[in-house]
């Protein structure tokens, strides 16, 4: 089935219970990890006979196996009004699809999925849950939500609330935020595996018209501006966008993974490739 997202945590997982992800914990089952003396791991069922016989100091050696753990996947969603943008794709629909797919994929393999949506303050909160119906709940809640925050300052507070064990946190935003806010947000999420998902749109990129005049209106109440499009301005616009994207990439790389560009339509396989490819 398409749309299922495969992901891997950067580093070992430290979830609440057994699950699908590699961790530092050792347990009785799973992939062989190492051999330790019996006194360190007094589990008579796992005595490695060959290694015990081979040991020149006649110690008893026990095999240890890697315990696989579950983890919590969180989506931190920007609910500022700019997420309402509709261009070649609709930003909010993309966010909805992404979150549903994440929730479904997470709960399918026993991970918990939680969601925090923030505009100027925290507006939408779904505690992490491993229930199978989580994706439906997420779909319902997101369909009922209309992003209309005048800023995304609530993201900071929400990031602080995601304390504790290491989690996979997808930060879903268009990242048209002040640089200071983005930096602070990444800093607060320091302990987690942060996947920035930048919602973009082809209409504001390669799809920009080369000629004509447009009256633009800021979705977040920043007024209106008439723009006379022409090739030189389009070039400058694109250069500016590329520069913004580049600075976001550099900032994100400093904290882990590069941002994933989600534009126009959601492709789960592509997102999986990104998640697996940047997990190393």
């Amino acid at each position: 089935m398409t749309g299922d997202i495969l992901y891997r945590l950067r580093g070992p997982a430290a979830g609440p219970g057994p699950g699908a992800h590699r961790s530092r914990d050792t347990g009785g089952l799973g992939v062989f990890r190492d051999q330790v003396p019996f006194w360190r791991h007094p589990d008579a069922r796992r005595i490695d006979l060959r290694a015990t016989l081979r040991d020149p100091f006649e110690g008893t050696v026990v095999r240890r196996f890697e315990q696989r753990r579950a983890l919590e996947v969180w989506a931190l969603v920007d609910l500022s009004a700019s997420m309402r943008f509709r261009g070649a794709g609709a930003a909010w629909d993309l966010v909805t699809e992404l979150c549903i797919a994440l929730a479904r994929s997470a709960t399918r393999i026993g991970d918990a999925f939680g969601l925090v949506g923030c505009g100027a303050g925290p507006d939408l909160m779904l505690p992490a849950s491993r229930r199978r119906g989580t994706a439906d709940v997420v779909a319902e809640r997101l369909a009922a939500t209309r992003p209309q925050g005048m800023s995304a300052d609530g993201l900071l507070a929400a990031a602080s609330s995601l304390a504790g064990r290491r989690k996979l946190v997808a930060v879903v935003s268009d990242f048209r935020l002040p640089d200071a806010l983005t930096g602070a947000l990444f800093d607060r999420l320091q302990g987690h595996d942060v996947v920035p998902v930048a919602i973009e749109d082809g209409a504001l990129d390669e799809g920009l018209p080369a000629f004509g005049q447009i009256e633009l209106e800021d979705l977040e109440g920043g007024g209106r501006r008439r723009v006379l499009m022409r090739p030189s301005l389009r070039t400058r616009w694109l250069a500016r966008e590329a520069e913004r994207r580049d600075s976001l990439r550099r900032l994100a790389l400093r904290h882990g993974r590069p941002p994933y560009r989600l534009a126009d339509r959601f492709d789960g396989d592509d997102f999986s490739r990104h998640l697996l490819g940047t997990a190393a």
Binding site: S82, M83, R84, F85, R86, A91, D174, R176, L204, I214, E215, L216, E217, D218, L219, E220, G222, G223, R224, R225, V227, W237, R240, E241, R244
Partner: peptide
């Protein structure tokens, strides 16, 4: 009027 995410991008 065409809404855009941010006028700062212009």
């Amino acid at each position: 009027r065409i809404p855009v995410p941010s006028l700062a991008m212009v």
